[in-house]
Design a protein around this nucleic acid. Structure first.
Length: 571
RNA sequence: GCCCUCGUAGCUCAGUCGGAUAGAGCACAGGAUUCCUAAUCCUGGUGCCACAGGUUCGAUUCCUGUCGAGGGCACCA
């Protein structure tokens, strides 16, 4: 049983006996300072009024209750304004090792989600060019969230919304067609808004190679060919970049599928959504346009769904898209967007409310990433910037380092990504610090194996060899992992996992330098190996939640990044 | 003008539903290896938690306002 749970149960029954309620704002947590014990509760301050006692008096009374009934608690103390601090018996902490070993890679898993169906939609960049580094942050976050939610008992599906309809797509087709004509030495003036990247020229050349007769086609057909080739090509590139970044979506949802009809007279999904909104008087026609009554949901003006020109706005297909999500049975939908869309959040949430699913949509905004090299800003917007794209950055620093950095900050604050710092394989780079801790344990296990020493099985004999304060300290940290996972999932905040891992790695390194394992005598050595292999298992389980590898040897990591980097010389 | 996010050590950032003397890494200085990987460990100090009020037993945390940074406010995408 978890320490927090145990303490809470004991406390609850003691309160019940005194006819006191469990206060809403009760908190049980490890106190900041070790000297205050393992866990601390604030209930006495909250209940003093109801109990008609001073906080400290109540605390003393409850402490006495706990001392008689809670046999796992070694000490129960009252401190400060009325905190109830408890210290668990060593045997309790040792029991954690049995838990970790039994669970293995599943350590930290829970059934918090109770099978709730959750969809995570992320990246969803328009297929008009390669992914840049900001998309990488969203990708790492979405993927890690999905892992966290799965681990906590949710049924998760990841989706990428492909904006393959609408104006931008037309411009994309036009852009390729223009480059193609220029390539063939034909006329073609630069247009006001079109895509200028080098990759457009590459696509044009490829289209020409595959369709040498393209100039004999009617222009509409030619543009169609350009367009579909461009989307396929760019989307293929995006998929590859994501795969290299260890990110996979279960489904790629086409916007076009919302707009298209099955046959003549049939309604598209968007039409169905419109009909639904009109029937409930949540939409209306005015000035030749179709409007959504977003003012009913707190917006300051109504928004257009279909322009008077007949074109749909993005908002229209987005509503329809979310309508579709809920029809597919998701209990909860999480969208990850760039921070530049934040004005859109309340509107979309209003729309979801209109669909009768108030509160079922959570939007996470990912703040900007500023790319630095040796402390200097790397221009992101210009065509010349070599490190604009995610794939360039990943090639230079490696997937593990990039992911770990992205996931070590909360998503709503701006992030500095210094290429040289992230690339460095040293202690200022926390990812290697954590990976090294994992590899260190494996190195010891291998050495021990040669010496004929194997990790002990959890049990009294092993625990006898782990009675020191440092041993218990490590056990305490291991015990916290399931709480960290649960909270990170609840708050949709994977960075809490990476911070925990740094802490656990630090504990491992400290332990390593203080306590020699293999020369400690066979029994103590076996006991310590048990402890350390539990640390490794927990590190691996945590790294897995971040999508970062847990190497058994560090030279593997070095090889991997060096290899990645050789293809791309530094600018 | 209105709205959103952010403001914590020299730098990059944590800080749990409001808890006890506000933390980590980096940078800086010194030390540790006959022994399991020194990609490591140990020892040093630094804060008007942007500012001003409010809520209460208690505020970095919640509320209001001010200042500062970024972003958003279309029949754009």
């Amino acid at each position: 049983m978890k320490a927090k749970q145990y303490f809470e149960e004991m406390l609850r029954s003691a309160l019940t006996e005194r006819a006191l309620p469990w206060p809403e704002k009760a908190v049980i947590e490890p106190p900041r300072e070790r000297k205050f014990g393992d866990y601390s509760a604030n209930v006495c301050m909250l209940l003093a009024g109801a109990a008609g006692m001073k906080p400290r008096e109540l605390a003393e009374a409850l402490a006495a209750d706990l001392r008689t009934r809670a046999d796992q608690l070694e000490r129960v103390e009252v401190a400060g304004p009325g905190f109830l601090n408890v210290t668990f018996a060593p045997g309790f902490w040792h029991g954690i090792l049995a838990d970790v070993q039994a669970a293995g890679a599943a350590y930290g898993a829970s059934d918090l989600g109770r099978g709730q169906r959750v969809q995570v939609e992320y990246v969803s960049a328009n297929p008009t060019g390669p992914l840049h580094i900001g998309h990488g942050r969203g990708a790492a976050l979405g993927d890690s969230l999905a892992r966290l939610l799965k681990k906590t008992g949710h049924q998760v599906e990841c989706e990428y919304y492909v904006n393959d309809a609408g104006r931008q797509m037309r411009i994309l087709g036009d852009s390729v067609w223009l480059r193609l004509r220029q390539l063939a030495g034909r006329q073609g003036e630069d247009l006001e808004d079109f895509y200028r990247g080098e990759y457009i020229k590459d696509i044009a050349a490829e289209v020409y190679r595959q369709n040498p007769d393209i100039f004999e086609q009617p222009e509409n057909t030619a543009i169609d060919i350009c367009f579909s080739h461009a989307v396929a090509d760019i989307l293929g590139g995006i998929q590859k970049d994501l795969a290299d970044f260890r990110v996979g979506h279960d489904r790629w949802f086409s916007e076009k599928s919302l707009v298209q009809t099955d046959g003549p007279g049939a309604l598209s999904k968007v039409d169905e959504t419109f009909a639904d909104l009109l029937a409930r008087d949540l939409a209306y026609e005015e000035d030749g346009a179709l409007w959504f009554r977003s003012t009913n949901f707190g917006d300051d003006k109504d928004r257009v769904l279909r322009k008077s020109s007949g074109e749909l706005t993005y908002f229209a297909s987005d509503i329809s898209y979310h309508h579709d999500k809920f029809q597919r049975g998701f209990d909860r939908v999480i969208d990850i967007w760039g921070a530049d869309h934040h004005g859109y959040v309340s509107r979309m949430q209003g729309a979801v409310e209109a669909l009768g699913r108030k509160g079922a949509l959570q939007v996470i905004l990912v703040q900007l990433v500023s790319l630095l090299k040796d402390g200097e800003q790397v221009a992101m917007s210009t065509r010349a910037g070599k490190f604009e794209t995610l794939s360039d950055v990943v090639a230079y620093v490696g997937t593990d380092a990039a992911r770990f950095l992205f996931l070590s900050r909360k998503s709503d604050s701006q992030l500095e990504f210094d290429l040289e710092l992230v690339r460095r394989k040293s202690m200022d780079n926390p990812v290697f610090y954590v990976q090294y801790a994992h590899a260190r344990v494996y190195s010891m296990l291998a050495k021990a194996e040669l010496a004929g020493i194997r990790p002990a099985s959890p049990g009294p004999a092993a625990y006898a060899g782990l009675a020191g304060v440092d041993d218990l300290e490590v056990c305490r940290l291991l015990e916290r992992f399931p709480d960290v996972v649960a909270q990170a999932a609840e708050q949709l905040a994977p960075h809490q996992v990476s911070h925990y891992l740094s802490e656990l790695a630090a504990a491992l390194h400290r332990y390593y330098s203080k306590h020699h394992v293999l020369s400690a005598g066979p029994e103590v050595a076996a006991a310590r190996l048990l402890l350390l292999s539990c640390v490794a298992a927990t590190l691996a389980a945590g790294l897995d939640l971040l999508g970062v590898e847990a190497p058994e040897r560090m030279d593997q990591v070095v090889e991997q990044t060096v290899e990645d980097a050789t293809g791309e010389a530094a600018p």
